[in-house]
Nucleic acid binder design. Sequence first.
DNA 1: TATAAAACACCACGTAACGTGATGTTCAAT
DNA 2: ATTGAACATCACGTTACGTGGTGTTTTATA
Lengths: 244, 244
Amino acid sequence: MYTIGKLSKETGVTKRTLDYYDEIGLVNPSSRTSGGHRLYGEEDVMRLERVLALKYMGFSLEQIKSILESSKLNWKQSIQQQLEMVKKEQERLKLLEQALLGVSYSIEFEGGVSWPIILNMIKILHQDPEEVFEQYQQYLDHEDMNKIKAVNDRMTEEDMHEWMQANYEIKKHLHLDPSSEQALQLAQRWADQAERMFESDDELLGDLWEALQNLEEEGIAFYPMDKEIIGFLKSVLAVHKGAK
Amino acid sequence: MYTIGKLSKETGVTKRTLDYYDEIGLVNPSSRTSGGHRLYGEEDVMRLERVLALKYMGFSLEQIKSILESSKLNWKQSIQQQLEMVKKEQERLKLLEQALLGVSYSIEFEGGVSWPIILNMIKILHQDPEEVFEQYQQYLDHEDMNKIKAVNDRMTEEDMHEWMQANYEIKKHLHLDPSSEQALQLAQRWADQAERMFESDDELLGDLWEALQNLEEEGIAFYPMDKEIIGFLKSVLAVHKGAK
DNA sequence: TATAAAACACCACGTAACGTGATGTTCAAT
DNA sequence: ATTGAACATCACGTTACGTGGTGTTTTATA
């Protein structure tokens, strides 16, 4: 028989928690002393351990209570549900990580917090892609959109970093002569990373590039693409093609 | 100028939430009607959007309030902290998923809920490996332990499934003649999966196998390994070796 | 066996970010 | 002027306990 203090030390659960579990009927001591002190027996300890296991698995105390009194069928269902919840939560966190990384890089490269970029990024990640790529509707078909979303999902931390940096470098050097070697290198860097991210799906990349050029407002390609960047790339491309 | 209802519809935030944000001074309307109705201006809408973005990124309202009034330096720090939190949470969820999968398979194969298995699984995942593999201390060195932990981290859903099933199949057929073809196949299946999980690190696998045999109590190898299973494998191995 | 110290029971308030009414007031349209 | 919709404000509920208080029981020591 454990007193509440002993049990607390044994299991690492605070007294208050045991208090609470007693109060809500989740783990009741099987007996008491004449003076009213709680005494927990072996079964009580077992029950507590099970409760802790289920708690670790992410169930609420309410759910735990009902699970512990239910049948096999209910068990399987609960576990499956919980599994799905966990998977969804993991996806959410993956997106969250991307958003935070984006903001982090945006601070790093832009030298400060750029709200338009952040808000766009959140939009991309927060809602379904349909709504964000709405402006592309007239230029890209449904298949393209899905592919682009897949590209976004595949993007690693390094991809994101390189992509934002390449864009930022261009922004910093918009004044460069499009025919200069340096401009060509910047454009090349941009194109290389785009190639990498699109896994050489040149058709898709071409479609997106077309769409970006035709857009009237600012475009988004995992990062706000302002007209300036697009214009710069366009002019470099023109010179380069002409020279060839 | 938006009234609270308009703003609510515009942004998808409930009135109560706007109420609350006003109350705690997170987003205050910049003016009111003579009658006291709230009127939100463009800046207020912008502020709200920023708040929502930060909320999406997982910050508490308290943090958001201070972030919105702080400097760049503070920003970077906050984002980095949040990033780390998110990464940690993701690791936790990965473990959680493993635990749930384990329980799910245990129900599937054992035909019901087996608490010893569940509690062991939770122990494996919950606390640091030191404590769980304590019993192996005398048989395995530190390096081996870390490798085993790495194996655990690498384990996919399919690995786990196959592993538990292979173990379960053996449990079901303990009575088989060790020299029978069927027994050999069961053992082979077990060994194959072990090989796969250990990525052919035969030395490590050998060490673990040694340890498992020498243990007096039940062992754990990503799943409770009872003496019966070990005994079965041992006898099959003996017959097979003898025959060779 | 008396007494002091430790452990305990039980109570109540606090937390975060709102949801859900309830009541009384102001606005917009008729 | 009236009426229905929108609004302001209040208050209690939610989860899983933490924190602290008061008064009682148990345990250790003299």
